Amino acid sequence: MTSTPPQLPVPARALLARHRTAGALALCAAVLLSALTGCAPAPARPHVLSSADIIRTAQQQLTDRCLLRQGLTPPRPGRHARSEAEEQRMSGALFGSGRTELSLTLPTGYSVRAHTDGCLAAAQRSLYGDQRRWFHASTIVNNLKPEAAHGHDSLASVRDRHRADIAEWQRLRARALSRAKAQLTRRNQNTHRHQNTHRYQKENVSR
């Protein structure tokens, strides 16, 4: 199953930012000279991931690990093109192969299909718990607007007809978000632990 998520250098702004920074530093210097106290620019606010980004990041980590275990390099934009055979192997490993086990025909007449094997399916089971339910609920929810347009209905009436599907989508997505946050937290902790161990070893060698 494929879906298209909504797509979430300005010299003038950069120049304005530099002027503001210079003004802030000048003010700090004045305060330092007059009151013998120091000040520093406020630290940049860390980038906060949206719920969708958190789930997407965790899902990519899971699919990357799955591909690496099979000796495959996870695909990334800008990487060199693979041969046709390599592309087929990558596609099968990532999206599954053979007969599609999941299928849903929408009121618009369009059919959506997905595999239950492959790294993406495994990642979805890990995050959402039940891939079959997530496939059904997410396919319905992602196509509410096309269904309304096809049936000349209001979006509100279509949403009302699919209250149960929307509730299921919300429940499964909340589960995925919780598991994704826990996964990313563990990864960050492991990264910090590795960095601290490396720094300790490096300091011991230099003594």
Rank of each mutant, 00 (worst) to 15 (best):
T2V: 12
T2A: 13
T4H: 06
P5T: 15
P5A: 15
P5Y: 15
L8W: 07
P9H: 10
V10Y: 09
V10K: 02
A12C: 01
A12G: 02
L15T: 12
L15A: 14
L16M: 12
A17W: 03
T21I: 00
T21E: 14
A22S: 13
L27D: 15
C28D: 14
V31F: 10
L32M: 07
S34G: 01
S34W: 10
T37H: 02
P41S: 03
H47M: 03
H47F: 12
A52G: 01
I54H: 04
I54C: 10
I55Q: 04
I55Y: 04
I55M: 07
T57K: 14
T57N: 03
T57M: 11
Q59I: 00
D64R: 01
R65M: 11
R65Y: 02
C66N: 02
L67W: 10
L67M: 14
L67C: 13
L67S: 05
R69G: 03
R69Q: 09
R69F: 02
Q70D: 10
G71T: 04
G71S: 09
G71H: 05
T73P: 00
T73C: 05
P77G: 09
G78P: 05
R82L: 15
Q88G: 07
R89S: 05
M90N: 06
A93P: 12
L94H: 07
L94M: 14
F95V: 00
G96P: 09
G96K: 05
S97R: 12
S97W: 10
R99K: 11
T100K: 13
L102V: 12
S103V: 14
T105E: 10
P107Y: 14
T108H: 06
T108Y: 05
G109P: 00
Y110G: 03
S111I: 12
S111E: 12
A114R: 08
H115P: 07
H115D: 08
H115N: 13
D117L: 07
G118F: 11
C119T: 07
L120Q: 11
L120V: 09
A123V: 04
R125A: 07
S126N: 08
Y128F: 15
D130I: 01
D130W: 06
Q131T: 05
Q131G: 03
R133V: 00
H136T: 08
A137R: 11
S138Y: 09
V141D: 02
N142L: 05
N143P: 09
P146Q: 07
P146D: 08
E147T: 15
A149E: 14
A149R: 12
H150A: 11
G151S: 15
H152P: 01
D153Y: 08
S154C: 01
L155A: 04
L155G: 07
A156F: 05
S157L: 11
V158R: 01
R159D: 00
D160F: 09
D165C: 04
E168P: 04
E168C: 11
W169N: 08
R175A: 14
R175Q: 15
R175L: 15
L177G: 06
S178C: 08
A180P: 03
A180I: 06
K181P: 00
K181D: 10
A182H: 04
Q183Y: 10
T185W: 07
T185K: 13
R186P: 00
R187T: 09
R187Y: 02
N190S: 09
T191F: 03
H194Y: 03
H194E: 02
T197Q: 08
H198F: 05
H198P: 00
R199A: 13
R199P: 04
Y200T: 08
S206I: 01
